Computed example of a mutant assay.
Amino acid sequence: MKLNVTALAQLFARIALGLGFLLPVCDRLGFMGVPGSGKAAWGDWSHFVAYTHTLMPFTSLLTANIAGLLATIAEVVLGVCLIVGFKTKWMGLGAAIITLTFAVFMIASLGIAAPFNYPVFVFTGAGLLLFTQHSFRWSIDALLIKK
């Protein structure tokens, strides 16, 4: 069996992006450690919503809470679908859109360096690269095409 570097790169990008969405969700739900433990960025929902409100200071705390919930739902869907390879092309586009949106809010609220302190643009680029692909080996997409 010949090594297909593109297929391997896609798999790596899918898993890295997927975990990159799911681990922060685990953090905001308290599974990565308590606030201030050094193991978590937020540690619970209230700290996450406070950060969301920092990125969206023009909104109310309730609106930041709703935006945080919608982002969390989107991140769970994107993360799971990317890892298993379901609708990968469109999940890649979704990943690019959500991370680019996050970057814009970070720049507007925290300054130009903020998204560069995290791999926000790397996630955007990886999502866009997945969106440009037409087939995804080792994925549910590939299994569905074979049937």
Rank of each mutant, 00 (worst) to 15 (best):
H47D: 04
W45K: 01
L23S: 14
F48I: 03
G30Y: 00
R28C: 05
G33M: 14
A50C: 03
P57D: 12
K39H: 12
G43W: 01
V25N: 10
A9L: 10
D27S: 13
T52W: 07
G33N: 14
I15A: 09
P35R: 07
V25I: 14
A7G: 11
F48S: 04
F21V: 08
F58A: 14
A7K: 07
W45C: 01
P35I: 13
A7P: 11
F58Q: 15
L23M: 15
D44N: 03
W42L: 06
T6E: 11
V49D: 02
V34C: 00
M56N: 15
L29W: 13
D44P: 01
P24Y: 08
L22D: 05
R28W: 06
G18N: 11
G33R: 11
A16Y: 04
L19R: 00
A40C: 09
W45E: 01
F31A: 15
G33I: 13
Y51E: 02
V34R: 10
W45L: 01
G43K: 01
F31H: 14
A16P: 00
V25S: 09
R14W: 03
C26L: 15
F58C: 05
V25K: 11
A9F: 05
A13L: 03
G38Y: 02
G38D: 03
K39S: 15
H53D: 01
F48A: 08
L8D: 07
V25T: 13
L23Q: 14
F12W: 10
A40F: 04
L55Y: 05
T52C: 10
T54R: 07
F31V: 08
L29R: 07
A7L: 07
F12G: 06
D44K: 01
G43L: 03
A7I: 07
R28T: 04
A16V: 09
F48Y: 15
A9S: 13
V49E: 02
T6L: 14
G43E: 01
I15S: 07
G43V: 01
Y51D: 02
T59V: 09
L22H: 07
Y51P: 00
A41Y: 11
G18L: 12
A41W: 08
G38I: 06
W42Q: 06
A16F: 04
L29Y: 11
H47F: 02
A13G: 03
M56E: 11
F31S: 12
T6Q: 14
V34G: 09
G36D: 07
A16M: 08
Q10F: 02
Y51H: 09
P57N: 13
P57H: 13
G30A: 11
R28L: 15
F12K: 00
Q10H: 09
L22P: 06
L8Q: 14
G30H: 02
V49A: 04
T59P: 02
F48E: 05
F21Q: 06
D27E: 11
Q10C: 03
T52Q: 15
A13C: 07
M32Q: 13
C26P: 00
L29Q: 10
G36I: 12
V34D: 04
V34N: 05
W42E: 03
S46C: 01
C26H: 00
V34K: 13
A40R: 03
G30N: 06
P35H: 09
T54H: 05
Y51I: 00
A50N: 07
D27Q: 12
G43I: 01
T59L: 15
